[in-house]
Amino acid sequence: MIETRCYVIALHDNGRVAEETYETAAFARRYVAADPCVVVLSGGGEIEPLAGRLADRTGLTVIGLAGDIVREYCAEAYTASLISFLRKKGNAFVCIPHTARGIDFAPQLSVGIGACCITAVEGAGEGTFIRSVYSGRFRSEVRPETPSAVLTVMPGAFKPEKGAMQGPGSVKIVPLRAFELSTKTRGTREAVHANMTLSRAEVVVSAGRGLGSAENLRLVEMLSGIFPKSAIGATRGVCDLGWLDYSHQIGTTGNTVAPRLYLACGISGAVQHVSGMKNSQLIVAINTDPDASIFRTAHFGIVEDLKVFIPLLVDMYREKHGDGDA
């Protein structure tokens, strides 16, 4: 425990608090300060219910920064408002969920308050924080050398606390000063690539770059073919290469799936991918690289060349089932 002043920045969308906010609050209480404050930014009408909900669930003091400039999420408005709020408070650790929005303003905020910035924190030691590096092959343990720090906390790395043990926390609303923004927000658009087949499938067979080439996708199709309600998924890397279109993408910025079986073929196991499939009931990974981090997520791992192993597996299955289609 660092025992310093600590602020948890709440993120929310359409009046709903992002679950990662509660994970970040739990992290802050466990490793940074026993009694952090939660800060939530929103427009006048929405701020009280949001702050009230946060106070009820966390039992922590909640500060609502209210103003029209933060009615919608906007990095520029968030950064400037938080800098002016935090500068008055002296040294502090600021904990933010490591989501697309959290990471959008965290580094600028750190510059503005003279803090160090540590992103994607997934663990902590004695005054140190642990994050994955080198494609998840290693972790690095880093120590802030400044009295202030901005930390972004990896989604799923810490469990939210169950209910407020000490009863609801107090709420304080602080009006924000308006100022001219260079940013104009224009709302959000729903996912272009939502894939219903993937979300309904009982079995998802997914392809990673380790497949080697687009031609080898037939192996994934072959394997998927032995399961009745299956669909084909992919990592972002595979979609970026154009082997499959983005509707197949699984991960932070793609589809999130939780099928009965997830078969990861040639997937290294980058955190962005894993966050989209880690709740699958059974995870099996096949990869030539025994050190691939996907083997830490998988319940069962097989170190084999996909080009050899998949045809063998499918043949053995068909022999047993007398399936003559092959």
Binding site: C116, I118, R139, V142, R296, F300
Partner: peptide
């Protein structure tokens, strides 16, 4: 503003069964 104390291997015991 910060120092890297050390590098660690991924946590042991997290791995599933390797067949």
């Amino acid at each position: 503003l910060l120092s890297v104390k050390r590098f660690l291997l991924p946590e042991e015991g997290e791995k599933g069964e390797i067949i």
